Amino acid sequence: MRILVVEDDNILREAVVSLLSEENYDVDEATTGDEGLYAAEQGIHDLLVLDIMLPVVSGLDIVKTIRSKGFTVPILLLTARDSIDDRVTGLEAGADDYLVKPFAIRELLARIKALLRRKGNLVSESELSYGGISLNNKVRDGFAGNQALGLSTKEYDVLEFLILNKEQILTREQIFDRIWGFDSDTTISIVDLYIHYLRKKLSPSGLDTLIKTVRGAGFMLKEG
């Protein structure tokens, strides 16, 4: 699971990022609203954690922009405001939940897990499957029927991202940013290489055809 945290308070942001990293989430961070909006528009995150009062672009404006472009990613707002009007404004803009500062760390984690579960992004190893392919998060491997695929860490991550977004086109940029990160020194051609690796491991079971190349766009996991 990849989470974006947009917060201009350095101490709070670093604490939240550290906490989420300890919980084994992949975390991206931004300190201004314009940086946060750019990252959010890449469509690679499972959850956005946004402060409302941000420099340049407010958290509410990020929510409105993201929703207007059709993104359904869960959004948790962090706010120092505790009036009913402020909470309603955030929810009406398209946020899924809010948390008033200061907050307890356990509550933050509970809210995040609840949002991921509600949106279907937090799934057990037995639930994450598509078209004869299944993933077991506990052993970090994929299966074609009952046959283990022997996936590397990055192969597992790519296949997980494809299954989470089944029947949707993922661009090379989305896959690259999601799996290798914005700051990676690796070139984007690594995406095609790992798609090749996955198809090769799925080929004996005939499931390699599930990974479609969409010319000029990217890749999609789709039956038929």
Rank of each mutant, 00 (worst) to 15 (best):
R2P: 02
L4K: 11
D9N: 13
R13Q: 10
A15I: 05
L20Q: 00
Y25Q: 00
Y25L: 00
D28G: 02
A30P: 01
T31G: 09
G33Y: 05
G33L: 05
E35D: 15
L37P: 06
E41T: 12
Q42A: 14
D51S: 10
I52L: 10
L54P: 08
L54K: 09
P55G: 14
K64H: 10
I66N: 08
K69F: 09
P74S: 04
I75T: 11
A80D: 11
D82Q: 12
S83C: 06
R87L: 10
D97A: 14
D97Q: 14
L99I: 15
A104S: 12
E107Y: 07
A110W: 07
R117Q: 14
R118E: 14
R118V: 06
L122H: 04
L122T: 09
S124K: 14
S126R: 15
E127W: 02
E127P: 05
G131T: 04
G132Q: 07
L135A: 01
K138N: 10
K138T: 11
R140F: 02
G142K: 05
N146L: 13
Q147Y: 12
A148T: 12
L149G: 08
L149Q: 09
L151V: 07
L151H: 09
E155L: 09
D157W: 10
V158H: 00
V158L: 09
E160W: 12
L164M: 13
K166D: 01
Q174T: 03
F176E: 02
D177I: 03
R178T: 01
T187M: 07
I188S: 01
D192L: 02
D192Q: 06
L193T: 14
Y194I: 04
Y197R: 15
Y197P: 05
K201I: 02
G206P: 01
L207N: 08
I211M: 07
R215I: 12
G216K: 09
G216C: 10
A217L: 13
